[in-house]
Amino acid sequence: MDKSDIETIEIDLFVEAMARRHGYDFRHYAKASLRRRVAGMLDALGCTTVAEMLPLILHQPELLPSILSNLSVPVTEMFRDPPVFKALRTEVIPVLATYPRLNIWQAGCATGEEAYSLAILLAETGLLERSQIYATDINDAALAKAEEGIYPAEIITKYAESHRLAGGSLDLQSYFSMAYGFGKIDPAIRAHVSFAHHNLVADGVFCEVNMIVCRNVMIYFDTLLQNRVLDLFGQSLVRNGFLCLGSRENVAFAAAGRQFATVNKILRIYKKTGGEA
């Protein structure tokens, strides 16, 4: 048995410890990514093996937030994949515009960039005033950053190009108040985004929504968990509600995917049909 075989055992023990000590169930996460992330936090915790992390998980609950934030590495940007936001603008927004009130759920929001991108899209299409975006994540450290809505100026400049490619009408900087090399999101945008802790593995429906945006979250789950999440999305969406996934994700592998019809195959936009799962 070599080091890699031993690490496989250690990862199993890690998952067991997280579930039984803290109630966070990673059993149905895709194994390869989970292993990478667990191994990736060794340095930060001053450990050389995953086994050395186990006493910390069991006996130092104050480390939980940092462990969780390492496990759900927040990688997000504003207007990532501009064609998707352009398609939302042209294919989805006209339908959303027929609702007198709009609830939108962005699941797996990390540090908030995508939630604010959606809010800006709604502002530019005249729908923001009637909209509420619920942006959720299990990573409290990321949520705290998202709540602040403060991003480095050079990153905002980088996002501005994506925003333009997504069909944005104003300069992206105009949605931020810029100072000291940072930009803070406009309070008028911020007011329509609520950030909250929600765990797709364990938590249930919290409101009825017209659109769910959940991009590059389910790729980290196994088929069983994908099925659970798609069921949860189906229960949360109004009939004909939209579901927007990451550019290489699809609903075909899970039985619960049958309740969704394709709106835009290339850009992975779906809608809930009347049928049951």
Partner: peptide, 17 residues
């Protein structure tokens, strides 16, 4: 996307940094 392989010999994608 990063391309990973699961123990059951299926592909897994990752959008990590």
């Amino acid at each position: 996307y990063h391309l990973l392989i699961e123990p059951d010999h299926t592909f897994a994608l990752s959008a990590d940094a």
